[in-house]
Amino acid sequence: MIDLRKRIWGAAAAVALAQTLALGWIVVDRIQLLRKGQEIVLPVEPVDPRSLFRGDYVILSLPVRRIPGSVPGERGNLKRGEALYVTLERNAAGDWAPAAAGREPPKGEPSRDRVVLKARMHFVSGTAKDLDVRYGLESYFVPEGKGKELEKLVGKRQVQVMVAVDRNGNSAIKGLVIDGKRIYDEPLI
């Protein structure tokens, strides 16, 4: 039972304030990441609409989630859900591809053609020990009913996702690019 104590107004304000600050902290953190992070653009494979707690969303399947066995780095004993640092490098054609994967963040500065993304281990497959990882960039939430519309677009055209990456490997979706045109550009708030 709630006790009517002297400081109950203070206590209620403290609860509301603490919860608001927790929410605000996530928002500020995201805004910082989106504003200051390095921008990279990754290709996306066909997607399908699903519905969950947070409403309709489309699954973005990123080809960079597959790390071939030939890429140097950690292979043995990786547990599902474990954190991995994946180095992406841009090739001559301008496409990003995994260049290394490891438990520890790699040394060396990121550059225009080299970024490090924090990922989570999903599974290892095949004798070549190909890794399948998740970057936390796989869900794009859309207004109710818009999922199908977007899906049709993705089937026919080249879709890319614009991502902001900070120095610690955190990443956030900035928006979608369809046929080189920025659509669904995300306002900061």
Binding site: L23, L34, A172
Partner: peptide, 17 residues
């Protein structure tokens, strides 16, 4: 409070964990 957490993770497409 819980709904707000969901709204923010929806706003910023936070898949995370």
């Amino acid at each position: 409070f819980g709904a707000s957490i969901m709204l923010i993770s929806q706003m910023y497409h936070i898949e995370g964990n």
